[in-house]
Every structure is written in structure tokens, then in C-alpha cells.
Simulated assay, not measured.
Amino acid sequence: MRPAPGPPLTGPAFLLLLILILLLGATGARGGRVEVPRSVTAVLGQDVVLPCRYRAQEQEQVVQVTWLKRGAAGTVPAEVAVLNPQHGEHVQEPFAGRVLRHGHGALEDGAIVLRNAVQGDEGDYECHLITFPMGSFEGRLTLRVLVPPLPILNPGPPLEEGQGRTLAASCTAEGSPVPSVRWESEVRGTNATRRSAHARSASVTSEFFLVPGRSMNGKSLTCVVAHPGLRHEKRITHTLSVAYLSDASVLGHTAEWQEGMEGAALTCLGDGNPPPTYNWTR
């Protein structure tokens, strides 16, 4: 009766097996090659595949794949997951529930899926493959997590005709890497941009200034934000409201008016924003 399979090799047992296989393969011919991209990009909250493929030679097979994440300089890489054809997958904290094998069948495809990527997942990862009989091989990649912005547009103070240069609106976007912000407008104006750096992101605030006039009332002002983590640019449109009042005029009186005349009427005309109210006095 065959004994039940044990857990995958990790820790000291994994290192011992690695040394033994390296000794076995030291005198043999060169094995296959590891294919790992230099970098992989993920978007915050989405799943990402970390590829690792081994091009094996004839009569060579991968017996275990171990994924490690490198920390700060001088620290020991942290184990992420171990893939073993007999014992399945073993995932360490804090990746438990978030890492699973990407492919099926032979371990020549040792890719893993990292679910719901967060900024803390950024860094360098190592894919270690133990092959028989050629020994150990590894590949390294860098994971970058993009944080797309959620832009906010804030209108400026109320606009009135006759004012000087006034803030019409400001638009702020924060993300990683830093987003870009620009304006599209039906009116003439100027803008000023400032940036602020944070621990894991950067924010951009762009302010649009104009000299209010009645011709600007009802015109649109659009903040356009671009970022590598966005499939399309984000656009927020603000409709300008400029307060103004035209001189009133009275129409209807003619030289033919006389006492007792019926149907005589006077009309008061005025324009403004908001619309003016009328009050007649004699």
C-alpha cells in the first residue's frame, strides 16, 4: 500500500532538495530556459497574471515551482506560493485566497494569478523552478500596480460680469503614476497646475481662470483626465453661469396716444442672468 502524499516542500526541506538537484545537474548538459517578462502591469482591484514558463529539453520535467517576493535590500525573500504536481498549491499569508495557479497540467507553465491587486503587491517577484534531472532555474519580474484617478471638479465663486480675472473651476485627480489634467472650453481663459506627492501616489490640481462676460453664460468648461490605468479619458463638464443685467427699455408709447384711447400698452424689456423681475411705478 502506497503512503499518502505529504505537503509540498517548503523552508529547509525545499532548500535541501534544491541543493541535491543542483549537485545532480552540475555535471550534465544545460537544461531548458525560463521565459519571464521583465515587468508586468496591473490595475488596482483587478486580477493579474504573473507569467513563468519553462522550455524543457527532452526527458526533462519540472517537479516544483516556488514563487518568492523580494523585500528590501538585505532581507530574505518572502515565499508567496509553491506549486507541486502531486501536492497541489500551497499559498502563504498574506496571499492566501488571492493567489492560484493560472494553468493546468505540467508545471512547465508555472504562472500564477494574483487576484484583486493592491499597491502593497508592487515589487520584484522570483519564479524558482526545480527540474529533473537538470536542477534549478529562476526568473525575475517586477510588478507595477496602477492606481487610476477619480477626478473631482469644483466650481469657483459666483461669476459676475465686470469682475476681473476670476477662478471658474478647479479639477483635482490623484493616482499612481501621476495623472495628467487638461481643459477643453468654449471660452478663453488661462490655467495653472500644481502637483503634490504622497506616499504611494501623486495628485494634480488644475485651476481655470477667466474674465467673466455675458457671452460666457451657458458655455461649457470640461476637465479631461488621462492615466495609464484608464481605458478612456475621464471627462467632467461644468456649465458656466455668469450674472449680468442689461439696461431696461420701455416700448409702446407713440405720438398718437390720447385721452380715452383703448388698447394702449407699455412693454418693459430687460435681459439678465438670473432673469430680472419687473416693478412699475408712476
Rank of each mutant, 00 (worst) to 15 (best):
G97C: 02
V99F: 10
A96H: 10
H102W: 14
L150N: 03
G162A: 05
E126Y: 12
P133N: 01
P158Y: 05
E161Y: 04
G162Y: 11
N154M: 06
M134F: 14
G103F: 04
L150E: 11
D109W: 10
A168T: 00
G120C: 03
A117K: 09
I130T: 12
S136Q: 08
V113Q: 08
H102P: 03
P133A: 01
G105V: 12
G97N: 07
G162C: 03
T131Y: 06
E160P: 00
R165M: 06
G164F: 07
G105Y: 14
T142A: 12
L143Q: 08
Q92F: 14
R165A: 04
A117W: 09
L167S: 00
G123L: 11
G120D: 08
F95R: 09
F137A: 09
L141W: 04
E93K: 13
G103Q: 06
P94I: 13
G139I: 01
N154A: 11
C127Y: 04
E93R: 15
L153N: 02
L100S: 15
L129F: 15
R101P: 03
R98S: 07
H90A: 10
L100R: 15
L100E: 13
A96S: 12
F132M: 03
L114R: 15
L143I: 09
H128E: 05
P157E: 02
P149R: 00
Q119A: 12
F95S: 05
R101F: 06
G139K: 01
G135D: 07
R140I: 01
Q119I: 09
F132T: 10
D109S: 13
E126T: 14
A106L: 13
P94T: 13
F132N: 08
L129G: 00
R101M: 07
G105W: 11
P151D: 00
T131V: 13
R165E: 05
A117P: 07
G120K: 05
A111T: 13
P94M: 10
P158S: 09
E126L: 15
G156N: 08
G164D: 08
P94K: 10
Q163Y: 01
F95I: 07
G156F: 06
F137M: 04
R144D: 09
P151S: 01
F95P: 05
L129T: 05
A96G: 06
L107T: 04
D121K: 13
I130A: 08
R115F: 02
R101D: 03
P148G: 09
Q163G: 00
E160S: 10
G135E: 06
R98W: 11
A106Q: 12
A117V: 15
G103P: 01
S136T: 13
V113M: 10
N154H: 07
D124N: 11
P158C: 01
V118G: 08
T131E: 04
V99L: 07
Q92K: 12
R115H: 06
P151V: 02
G120Q: 08
G97K: 05
E126W: 09
L159K: 11
C127D: 00
D121E: 08
H102K: 10
V147M: 07
D121C: 11
E126M: 11
P157C: 02
H102V: 02
L167N: 02
A96D: 08
A168W: 02
R144E: 12
G139W: 04
N154Y: 09
G164R: 03
L107S: 02
L129A: 14
L100Y: 10
F137D: 00
E138F: 14
P158G: 03
V113C: 05
P94C: 14
A96K: 15
